[in-house]
Design a protein around this nucleic acid. Structure first.
Length: 442
RNA sequence: GCCGACAUAGCUUAGUUGGUGGAGCGGUGGACUGUUAAUCCACAGGUCGCAGGUUCAAGUCCUGCUGUCGGCGCCA
């Protein structure tokens, strides 16, 4: 039952002049009662198949002519090169419908639904996400997504990082408590994890270089093109490394993802209308680093009202990044703006050793990371200074009690990187079944 | 949590100062031997989101509700 031939190979000319058996779905169908053109789709592309009544006989012709859009079919025939639009066609000699589509319930996603969406997403398409997945745009995006995921794994594995898994049910928060999803847990309360980080630090003394790519959950009621409540988080942690080491990995990772996309998915990027020169620039250029103070001065110089000590919200980020043509690192935030696990800068403890990587074109923050507070005294001071209770973090503090070492790591929003590199209008376009504050179905 | 917009056929939509809701796509039937979102003819398909109100009369005006979309705060 496996497939012997693929549409992509027909299109590339590998099967010119030979017999093929194509298995796929009817993308479009048109014709007369003597000749029928079925544009067949499989995961590798679409090809026009020509069915003539005189060649296949009445029974086969009528069966295939009656196959509505998205019916699954098998078509056998000879591949012929052609000057017409597709370059290659299949002259069908036989075939059959495998999974019909009934006229009472035709495939609901029509040209009009697609045309209006234009890469964006209507309520209708979100409601019919399970069917929208098989359209050209989503298929292309999912291939790009797969390459991004593959590039992340390759980057870390090529550098001897160990992939390491943390639990998804957790007892405490990494970020602010208000963004936690609470779930019933046998009469107690548990939460869905927001980050792998705290549990990764526990394995840092064991593995020294570790990474993961896993979902994180944040109950933010954010309704923006950059937010999901369930998003894919690529995180890493290294022992014996400081802020700059971590940042170097962040930059190298993002650049290798861009380079890999150009290598593997140039055609798909072009299909989405992405400017390949931009992606090349993201792969080839060094990402500048700017201290928080410098960013504040720049913003103030632009007339933006911002005070030292404030975290930079998206409106500020947007102004700051509008002139950037590559991602920029922002480093050394004031310690009052960041949580306790960020290590204060020994040169000036007003600041912490951290960094955010801001993507250009308004795609926002794609990486957040830094050096961890690693001595027992320092971590206890910072927890108390924040007014955070110690109890839930005892296991985390223990890591410092038994041979603490300098270490650090970052988290990268994989879906955001997909959105940015593909030029998507909305992060939702990059994930099969997006989850946000108002939608958990389908 | 806050601000804004929208809701008409399966889809995309038109609908004027309030006066018997139209079209394109998709579907059905028919015509057509090379179509490219095929074309042409015909047909079917509507609780105008829900509930009230104003009016002789509401898709249209008012109020409430629901849902969705966009944005902010927060973040990756």
């Amino acid at each position: 039952m496996t497939k012997s031939h693929w549409v992509g190979d027909v299109l590339s000319g590998s099967h010119d002049g030979s017999e093929v058996e194509l298995k796929g779905w009817v993308h479009r169908s048109r014709g007369s009662n003597k000749i029928r053109f079925v544009v067949m789709r499989d995961s590798t592309g679409t090809v026009q198949c020509v069915i003539k009544r005189e060649s296949v006989g009445d029974q086969v012709f009528d069966e295939l002519a009656g196959a509505l859009i998205e019916s699954s079919v098998v078509l056998r025939g000879t591949v012929t090169p052609t000057d017409r639009e597709h370059g290659h066609e299949v002259q069908v000699s036989s075939g059959e419908v495998i999974g019909p589509v009934s006229a009472e319930r035709p495939f609901p996603i029509t040209e009009s639904a697609m045309a209006e969406a234009d890469g964006g997403e209507t309520e209708f398409l979100l409601d019919n996400r399970h069917l929208y997945l098989r359209t050209g745009r989503m298929t292309t995006m999912l291939k790009i997504r797969s390459s991004v995921f593959g590039a992340v794994h390759s980057y870390f594995r090529d550098r001897d990082f160990i992939e390491y898994q943390a639990p998804n049910f957790v007892a405490g928060a990494v970020e602010g408590g208000s963004t936690l999803f609470e779930v019933p847990y046998f009469g107690r309360k548990a939460y869905l994890t927001q980050s792998w980080q705290l549990y990764a630090e526990a394995a840092m003394p064991s593995l020294e270089r570790l990474y993961t790519m896993a979902p994180s959950f944040r109950a933010e009621k954010s309704r923006t093109r950059r937010h999901l409540t369930e998003f894919w988080h690529a995180e890493m942690e290294i022992a014996w490394g400081g802020n700059a080491d971590v940042m170097n990995h962040g930059e190298a990772l993002v650049r290798s993802i861009a380079a890999n996309l150009l290598d593997e998915r140039e055609a798909e990027l072009s299909e989405l209308g992405r400017d390949l020169d931009l992606v090349s620039r993201y792969a080839d250029t060094t990402y500048p680093r700017m201290r928080y103070d410098e960013a504040i001065e720049t913003l103030q110089g632009m007339g933006v009202e911002v005070e030292w000590g404030q975290d930079l919200d998206y409106s500020k980020e947007k102004v700051l990044t509008q002139d950037f043509d590559v991602p920029h690192f922002l480093t050394h935030y004031p310690r009052i703006a960041k949580p306790f696990y960020h290590r204060p800068d020994p040169d000036d403890p007003k600041y912490v050793l951290c960094h955010d990587l801001l993507a250009p074109e308004g795609y926002g923050e794609i990486i957040g990371g830094g050096e961890r507070t690693w001595s027992e005294k320092e971590i206890l001071d910072r927890i108390d200074e924040e007014g955070t209770p110690r109890e839930p973090y005892e296991f985390y503090i223990d890591i410092r009690r038994y041979g603490g070492v300098p270490h650090g790591g970052f988290g990268m929003g994989v879906d955001r990187v997909c959105a940015w590199l593909s030029g998507a209008d909305h992060i939702r376009e990059t994930i099969p079944f997006p989850r946000d504050s108002r939608r958990v179905t389908p």
